[in-house]
Design a protein around this nucleic acid. Structure first.
Lengths: 347, 347
DNA sequence: CATTTTTGTGCAAACGTTGGCGCAAAATCT
DNA sequence: AGATTTTGCGCCAACGTTTGCACAAAAATG
């Protein structure tokens, strides 16, 4: 018990004494239970405000079983896409009265003690946005009956997921490039572990070759700027005959690296090589890059993700669900000879 | 109580029955209390492992008063610096058995309900990294006896702080530029609210003018890429006679924007205008930018920040403390005619 | 062997909140 | 006026853990 010598905070019991009613009445009044009379409710609310009452989420959780806490496993925040996702998540969750217990951020693997902390804190659900394999946390949740929703990630066993229709996005991009007359594409992918990247490439390759184009080369760009840069240099090293006339990077961060490398090697963009990315991160929209990209409907993804989670928290045992959302093509200077503001084409 | 129909998790009581001892013994054994015999402890640990026992942090908090939770108010994650900070924070906190309740992320103001949630969840302490004024959360904590530590931010009333010696950093940068022969500097600051930016500029301006240089212009770059870009364009619009020969941006993200704008206007860097930033974010180190910067000792800052917090949690009422850490100058191509790998000079 | 000290364990009372159930008083219906 | 429903509230037992205190047994001391 050893309690610090600060003035004890007002509790429900304090208020109940002040109001001369029982603790349960106070509890119900505060929570807006219909069984409490209007007048009593008003009186208690006033008292609570005056006393500076703050509910104790821990006591509530212990008693009710619901913590109002969501576990969050965030991908490498060095990719601005995850930074955007984080902001959107925190904002929307707060609007629903949910808070995030942040479990992991970054590319590294998530250690077991950290993953277990999720359960210690009785998270109601868990949101995983990491694109890579660090979903130990998801497994732990799944085996303990905690609903898991993945955003921007392929669903695993016992998890729902919402993501952009990556394959359609890749296809749209292929049509766009083919439509601009490009025939030989290089693809900068993100390795074998990223389902997003794989889907995007599959859609792109299918539509591009079906449309009479050719996938001239593939490079593993590791979902990083550096990977993109290295790939760009590899393209520079290609004999002129094997050079692609356009390039599809499965994420903008890759595209940025590739563009810098290519430009550094004297290649003009889109003149000699047109290029396109994916994600529509703000960085890629900057005048210095101005990269055509495919925009994921971030706000909607987050909204639907939280929907999936809250419904599964409310009624356990609901079957898993996968939501695929349409994104839109955003055409910019990197695939368009004439310059001007980016224009939007719905995919 | 309505409890979900899942198999109830093992609790201390469960274990106590299994072991044929009291709950208190189990609790003490689990926590490593010295009063419990080695053999008993081993037996209980084995039992706990077998039963898949997971401690209930909420019950523990309710009883002990310590939650193991830290509130986190994060700055705009769109600035990669905060992304770096986030990763470092989460990693180091996890190593200490502390978790973050994420309260806010992003540039916007923090709403009261969210800030109050900090107290609902009984956070032991609060870490604020936001550079701007959105520290409503900090006030709430302070008035409720929850220790607050700010990282990369000037301390407020009732808060400790750890930050880089921004003024010294600015001064170092000034000496570097003066040493390279530059005389007329433009400063890209981040507005009146950012104490970091103000300190950096003060140090820079003092040392630059003392060294015989002149501050030719100032622009408010709002701590964003766009702000930097706009400032760069403003510089381009300056008559040749009033053009600076070097530029100090109080953060790298600003410097990047400015560099893109200047280059876009045909200015060679560092030939016509040399430029320096601050923070040493990875983006600014890319070959396409290669911006001289001042590196904050991020890992140490986080470590000391958590130190400050944990000691104040352990012994309430400790006086506030401000820790200033030295950073180091990292010279890159943007201030050096000859090209090559970045070199490091301790400030 | 009779003390005192140590060591190991149990008991029971919190911590603040919730929710099932019970029960009066008031309101509505015969 | 009685019978029934509704309304409004209180009682009490959880939820899982910690911790002050008591207390027996074992060990060390005289």
């Amino acid at each position: 018990m050893e309690h610090v010598p600060t003035r004890p905070r007002a509790t429900i019991v304090t208020l109940s004494r002040l109001a001369g009613v029982s603790a349960s009445t106070v509890s119900r009044a505060l929570r807006g239970d219909a069984r409490i009379s209007k007048s009593m409710r008003a009186r208690i609310m006033a008292l609570a405000a005056e006393a500076g009452y703050l509910p104790n989420a821990f006591a509530r959780t212990l008693s009710s079983g619901r913590s109002g806490l969501l576990g969050l496993v965030l991908g490498p925040a060095t990719n601005p896409f995850y930074a955007m996702l984080l902001e959107e998540l925190v904002t929307q969750a707060a609007a629903r009265g949910l808070r995030f217990l942040i479990v992991h951020a970054g590319g590294g693997a998530i250690d077991d003690a950290t993953a277990a902390a999720l359960l210690h804190y009785q998270v109601d659900g868990c949101l995983v946005t990491s694109a890579d394999m660090s979903s130990r946390a998801a497994d732990i949740c799944a085996t303990n009956g905690v609903p898991v929703v993945m955003i921007n990630r392929v669903p695993r066993l016992h998890a729902s997921a919402v993501s952009c229709d990556n394959e359609a996005g890749g296809r749209t991009m292929a049509l766009h490039l083919r439509g601009a007359g490009h025939r030989r594409a290089a693809v900068l992918h993100s390795g074998a572990v990223s389902s997003n990247g794989i889907d995007r490439e599959r859609g792109f390759a299918a539509a591009f070759t079906e449309g009479g184009g050719e996938i001239a080369a593939r490079f593993d760009a590791r979902s990083t700027y550096e990977g993109g840069y290295d790939s760009g240099r590899a393209i520079l090293a290609l004999p002129a005959s094997r050079r692609p006339d356009c390039l599809f990077a499965v994420s903008d961060i890759i595209a940025m690296g590739a563009m810098d490398a290519l430009r550094g090697g004297g290649v003009t963009i889109p003149g000699e090589i047109a290029m396109a990315g994916f994600d529509c991160i703000p960085d890629a929209a900057r005048p210095a890059y101005d990269i055509t990209s495919f925009e994921q409907p971030l706000a909607t993804m987050v909204q639907r993700g939280l929907d999936l989670l809250t419904t599964r928290i409310a009624t356990p045992g609901l079957p898993d669900e996968t939501v695929l959302l349409r994104g839109q093509l955003v055409i910019r200077g990197s695939t368009r000879p004439a310059m001007g503001a980016g224009q939007v084409v719905t995919a």
